[in-house]
Design a protein around this nucleic acid. Structure first.
Lengths: 251, 251
DNA sequence: TGACATTTGTTCTTATATCGCACAAAATGA
DNA sequence: TCATTTTGTGCGATATAAGAACAAATGTCA
């Protein structure tokens, strides 16, 4: 790609959109400028453009995103076959085992949920398509890391902010590399309250007809309902059955 | 806003992202150019930029969006208080009545789901935050139209593509204006298989402490389980209770 | 309260990047 | 093969980015 095939304005605008988040529902021009590292004048132009297009709202002081922004993510979810293909399988699986089931893919150091069938939520975390979790401490994340060449997985772990969500969270790179190696060998990952106390999960890879891993599938269960040792016994077989059924459908 | 405060490149790039959708999971440069009305050279630069940033993938022929695009919508969902505030109420409501419950807002002629608690899906439609439905034939859409001044509602109906999803779909503007008037008076809307055969729903407005309508709340039920006449009797009270509880929380 | 300091938003200018056209090259398919 | 369609590139005209300067708002302290 030539230098001139890159549209700086587009990259900057997208960066500004991403600046909104958890702790930043509303941004002033200066805040957006600081978060993105863009010049105030440029950040302002991006925000005004987004407002003009209806993607943001401006009250003279603060900018906030409008639901129109969801069109962008929706373009992906409706354009990509994976979410549609897996959804009915997730629904059946979730019903069968009485727990939530999800499918996610890797994006950098995070897993991104692309489909989910949830049972009544008892957890504090509210997950839906588009939600993100750090890969290193999520069952699907570990499975997806295990599919990469070890050096790549290690590189991603090094890039990750390894923090302890609970006392059980593994945060050592070597410890995690070892864990990922084990998962690669056994073909599934179990997370026992590493992300949130009271939550356990188990995941397997989803491979396409040619054997390439395209996503991960998991089941999450309240710790109060399912003992740590039971996770594998109860859920591994159903997960593998679904993975098997999906295989020819993930061209 | 001055002319020069508008970044054309950003607007064009966003337009290209939106070009991906239902029937267009993968686009060539020429296709993107035709769908957006942009010059081929420009569409190409937008696509290459998106690929460079990791928002799209390019195999030399086709471009497709990557899950990274979901970051953008996620910026909204995590930055906006509404989805987080209503989620626990939705979960409880859904559990209580044994049906799916959702909250949505209006974006142009469409309703956009911002939160949802779903029971096992029996419908062909798979809805999740970010999903869109035409306002004129969705219960939440009618409720939201009813909150607008009549002329504005009529204008939106005129802009809508009024098509018959089922034999029961109302598609006449005057007919719909009349229906919306009725809904404004009674404070709730019932949709009886207008969007999909076998699906009924009922919606009420969510108003904030100052009485402004900020969203709509609904319950959807399989027609086989709940008779048309029963919708109001069974679900209106629970919906209104939740709307009441939420009122002080929607600052 | 009023003067000063600081922060934030807006405007201006110019070097630079982008747009869209026209043309060339490559791929597609009859 | 030749016609047709699609993709890539060079170029002049035009739009945009950056930073500094200016203006307005906000905060601070005597």
């Amino acid at each position: 790609m030539r230098e001139t095939d890159f549209i700086g304005g587009l990259a900057k605008g997208l960066k500004v959109i991403e600046a909104f988040g958890e702790t930043q529902p509303r941004l002033t021009i200066t805040e957006a400028s600081k978060l993105t590292g863009l010049d105030r004048a440029t950040a302002r132009r991006c925000l005004l453009t987004l407002a003009e297009l209806g993607f943001a709202h401006y009250d003279g002081k603060f900018f906030s995103l409008t639901p129109r922004i969801l069109r962008l993510g929706h373009a992906y979810l409706s354009a990509t076959p994976l979410p549609h293909v897996v959804q009915p399988f997730l629904d059946r699986l979730s019903e069968e085992v009485g727990q939530s089931a999800s499918v996610s893919v890797l994006d950098g150091t995070e897993v991104v949920y692309v489909a989910r069938a949830s049972q009544r939520r008892v957890m504090s975390i509210n997950l839906s398509p588009g939600s993100r979790l750090p890969a290193y401490c999520a069952s699907m994340g570990r499975v997806l890391l295990a599919q990469l060449p070890e050096e790549e997985a290690r590189a991603l772990l090094n890039q990750s902010t390894l923090r302890s969500f609970t006392p059980k969270t593994k945060t050592g790179v070597e410890e995690l590399v070892e864990e990922v190696r084990k998962i690669r060998a056994q073909g599934f990952a179990v997370i026992d309250e590493e992300l949130e106390l009271g939550l356990r999960s188990i995941a397997v890879p989803l491979t396409d007809a040619r054997g390439r891993t395209v996503a991960a599938l998991n089941i999450g269960a309240p710790a109060a309902r399912v003992a740590a040792k039971e996770m594998e016994a109860q859920f591994l077989a159903p997960l593998r059955t679904v993975a098997q059924q999906l295989r020819p459908l993930l061209g």
